[in-house]
Amino acid sequence: MKPFAYERPDDAQGAVATVSADPDAAFLAGGTNLVDHLRLGLATPSTLVDVTGLTSTEITDAPDGGLSIGAGVRNADLAADERVRARYPVLAQAMLAGASGQLRNMATTGGNLLQRTRCAYFQDLTTPCNKRQPGSGCSALEGWARHHAVLGATHEPADVACVATHPSDMAVALAVLDAQVRVLGAEGERSIPLSTLHRLPGGEPSRDTVLAHGELVTAVDLPPSPIAARSTYYKVRDRASFAFALVSVAAAIEVVGDTITDARLALGGVAHKPWRATAAEEALVGAPPTDDTFRAAARAELVDARPVESPRGGTAFKLPLVTAAVTAALRGLAGGEEHA
């Protein structure tokens, strides 16, 4: 591990000023991802700026009826909040489906958003990876691809290819809730939609988000969302607990009579960012809440899907898995039985 200086400024503005002025400085919050990256040699900051205690650790009622979540709120405390559980069950479920009890006690809201992909090649300094070492290639395309993308990835050209996925469960729930992310930079505060915080790899896979170096997440704002009271998070993984999603679905649905009148859907484990499934949402609204509708909606979202086809296992298995997971999640919300 490379040596680093450790600083704890008096306030968030001071932390932003310090990191903005030093390209080799990095923010430290819960440390659950960053400390591992320090040890792996993946992150080599010269200075760590600890923001613990510099952003809010409170969840407050917003004037518009929504909730404002401080960036310092621990994942465990967000999941346990009774307002979150009652008004945004998809968020509580997503939080609780992620990581372990110990990690949820440590990890923060801001850090959860900015955690990096768990692609094995990204974390292995001995292999080519365009995200870690731009221009070096993508090892997953020919390697062990299982937690990798089917949507929005860059397969070619080789020097920018990236099929990594974003690992957060929380962010998938926030995508379906139309959350806003408040960010403090050297020039002041701005608020950006969660759906535009993370980016697709495009031709620049080293960049996970649209944030500039030195910008600090200070809060996540949830708008009031009556539809969210009937929402769910459905996660498929390789073991029953403490594993990243192969595929996950955040869903909210409103049914009047025999018709779906409103729907929100986002997918996890399939793309470089939480994937808001707008094509599926369009296919759902106006249709009856049946398995046929749910499957058709999932397929509509997957029209442009392109799995990784690696000789050591690819991600084609995720296409039927997405369809099954979307169907199961929506069936549960619609209160329906399984129809063949």
């Binding site: 400390v35 760590l48 009890g101 006690n105 440590m106």
Partner: peptide, 27 residues
């Protein structure tokens, strides 16, 4: 594992169960 995956290093840090392998002492 020293990577936060096994839980063998779990301690109570200010009362909450925490992975000591992912906690920097200086923090």
């Amino acid at each position: 594992c020293d990577h936060g995956q096994c839980g063998a290093c779990t301690v109570l840090l200010d009362g909450r169960r925490t992975l000591s392998c992912l906690s920097l002492a200086v923090a």
